[in-house]
């Protein structure tokens, strides 16, 4: 058989189709939606209540709880709000200031790990260092981490940070939801405990959604009609209410509601298949053709000899 270009394309198409067809059952398995651990805890942040300046008690409480250095600038120093800050290996949570409805009433938004229901960091991690616990926290195990920092690329909220200044045992650092010290025993994290105005409410995630809905319904003028984190990237344990649109308080509104792991799951589930079938198939095809050519050449040789 002499394989021309057209035949080759037919073969390749058929193989890909077969691969796609055979991967269908895998896909169906992958899209079986994970509804999250029942009774997992969450936190509702009502940004309209945060006073920010002269307080930042959450930042200080977080540092104390996680044995991190005390934040450089004291609470009464307003210059911390001059630029937008992000999380840092030494600071797992930061408060940023954003313009509010009027110049006099800015909005202060706390930033920390959102503890996604289906965390992108966990799906990107090669060694499974990240885990979503049944209590709601996304935890990190430094003992298995290989330092690839894929988690940092994967996170839609830019949360994990890396100890670049540590030469021997650099770790990925992020908010822990105070899992080991508090959440495990059903207690609220240190930042929530420290907040004087109870800006953050700790409780079962499903209850918090109800509370948030009630708050919006009772004060429609006070809040934007949206619970940030209820559906974003498939839902997060930390959720936010805001008096101004969320993109104006530094929160991404282009993330969609699909869990990040799901975006790559179908594609990645086909990868082993392609990796396993394509090489063997093409090798067979190649060997088959080679043998055929060889036989043809031999026969041709014989024929020539005979005719000669």
């Amino acid at each position: 058989m002499n394989l021309n270009r057209r035949d080759f394309l037919k073969f390749a198409g058929a193989t890909t189709a077969t691969a796609a067809l055979t991967s269908l059952p895998i896909k169906a398995e992958a899209t079986e939606h994970f509804t999250g651990h029942p009774d997992r805890k969450g936190i509702l942040v009502d940004t309209s209540l945060c006073i920010g300046h002269n307080c930042r008690r959450c930042e200080f409480a977080c540092a104390k709880e996680n044995y991190l250095p005390t934040p450089d600038k004291p609470p009464e120093d307003a210059s911390v709000f001059d630029q937008r800050r992000r999380t840092h290996p030494d600071q797992f949570t930061v408060i940023n200031r954003f313009p509010g409805r009027s110049e006099d009433m800015p909005v202060y938004a706390k930033k920390q790990c959102m503890h996604c229901d289906e965390p992108a960091c966990a799906s990107a991690c090669l060694v499974g260092a990240f885990k979503k616990t049944p209590e709601g926290a996304v935890t990190y195990d430094a003992s298995v981490c290989i330092g690839c920092r894929y988690c940092m690329v994967a996170c839609p909220f830019d949360i994990p940070t890396y100890e670049y200044n540590s030469a021997l045992h650099p770790r990925v650092r992020k908010c822990t939801f105070c899992f080991e010290t508090k959440l495990k025993e059903g207690k609220a994290p240190a930042c929530v405990e420290a907040c004087p105005r109870e800006v953050m409410t700790f409780g079962k995630r499903e209850d918090l959604i109800k509370v948030a809905r009630q708050k919006i319904a009772r004060n429609p003028d006070k809040y934007v009609d949206h619970i940030y984190g209820e559906h974003e990237v498939g839902g997060t344990s930390w959720m936010y209410l805001s008096p101004v649109p969320f993109d104006s308080i530094g929160m991404r509104t282009d993330l969609g509601t699909t869990p990040y792991p799901e975006l790559t799951r179908n594609y990645l589930s086909a990868a082993p298949l392609v990796m396993a079938i394509w090489p063997s198939f093409f090798l067979t095809l190649y060997l088959f053709n080679k043998r055929k050519d060889q036989i043809a050449a031999e026969e041709n040789g014989k024929h020539k000899e005979e005719s000669a």
Partner: peptide, 12 residues
């Protein structure tokens, strides 16, 4: 959960 605790109520 909707009702603030005493600390929150005072500070608010």
């Amino acid at each position: 959960l909707e009702q603030p605790g005493l600390k929150g109520a005072y500070h608010r």
